[in-house]
Design a protein around this nucleic acid. Structure first.
Length: 264
DNA sequence: CTCAGTGTTCAGTG
DNA sequence: TCACTGAACACTGA
């Protein structure tokens, strides 16, 4: 479920195994779609023998930095993930596997193949990262900054939250969760939010993302009061832990769960 | 067999 | 040009 907290979790995982270590071997799957124009062999060549200086993230993208260019940039799409392991078989749906000098292994998996692996010399200065807004965890704008981003948009506030060029890292479940906790109807035009609502939106966004990252994006560890646990499946009789009725509709082209009794 | 789905991009519309 | 909408992409699992 790769939104910002999941990607941050995966980034930390990869960093734990790879940082400061040399990559001694790389295996790549034959998948032109996921490798997005960068031939798998060029990706392998960019990493083989290199020492990983850092694993960085912006929004839902993360990339490996070594002492040379280009960097290898990852996006997990809808179903991508990262697995680490010491030995044994490559995980199902693997796309790339890296082996470090001390035997640690890291693989990216992606059953639905909407994820991407790219090569970039200067990731932050080139597309697709160059088009991203501030990161929702590390660079979250103030309530005032948020107001400026939203005030000119007539689009539903939920669609604005999902727009990566405004704020990077918010995905479908975070948008629903934050609007639920802030008590804002997802269909409201972004420009219609009052000052107090913007302040609430901002602080809820920060709290939800921080909590999810602190939980290692393990949803079993998310607070019981979160909408998250009850929003899936478009069930007609869905209720929150507090017994509030959950309604499903489409907003900004995405399945949206919200609680009419609480969100205005 | 049918359908929903955690994301992004692009064609088309106004 | 801009803002916005909806479809397409691909595949699994319910």
């Amino acid at each position: 479920m790769p939104e910002l907290p999941e990607v941050e979790t995966v980034r930390r995982l990869a960093e734990r195994v790879l940082r400061g270590r040399r990559i001694v071997s790389i295996a790549t799957a034959d998948d032109r779609l996921v490798f997005d124009g960068a031939a798998p062999r060029r990706v392998a060549a960019a990493l083989r023998g290199r020492t990983v200086a850092a694993v960085r993230r912006k929004g839902k993208h993360f990339w490996l930095e070594t002492d040379r260019r280009p960097c290898v940039l990852f996006h997990l799409g809808m179903s991508g993930w990262v697995e680490t392991y010491g030995d044994g078989a490559r995980p199902r749906f693997w796309k790339i596997e890296l082996v470090s000098e001390d035997g640690g292994r890291v693989a990216m998996t992606d059953p639905r193949r909407l994820g991407r692996i790219r090569l970039r010399d200067e990731p932050l200065a080139e597309p697709p990262l160059a088009g991203l807004g501030p990161d929702a965890l590390d660079e979250l704008p103030s309530a005032r900054g948020l107001a400026e981003l939203l005030q000119r948009r007539s689009t539903p506030v939920k669609a604005a939250l999902l727009d990566q060029s405004l704020i990077a890292g918010v995905g479908n479940w975070i948008a629903d969760e934050v609007l639920y906790q802030a008590g804002i109807d997802p269909r409201r035009p972004a420009s219609s939010l009052r000052r107090d609502e913007l302040a609430r939106l901002r602080s809820t966004l920060a709290t939800v993302i921080r909590r999810a990252v602190a939980a290692g994006a393990d949803d079993a560890r998310f607070p019981r009061t979160w909408l998250f646990h009850h929003r899936w499946g478009r069930k007609n009789d869905a209720r929150t832990a507090r017994g509030e009725r959950i309604v499903h509709l489409t907003v900004g082209g995405r399945t949206t769960a919200f609680v009419p009794d609480r969100q205005r």
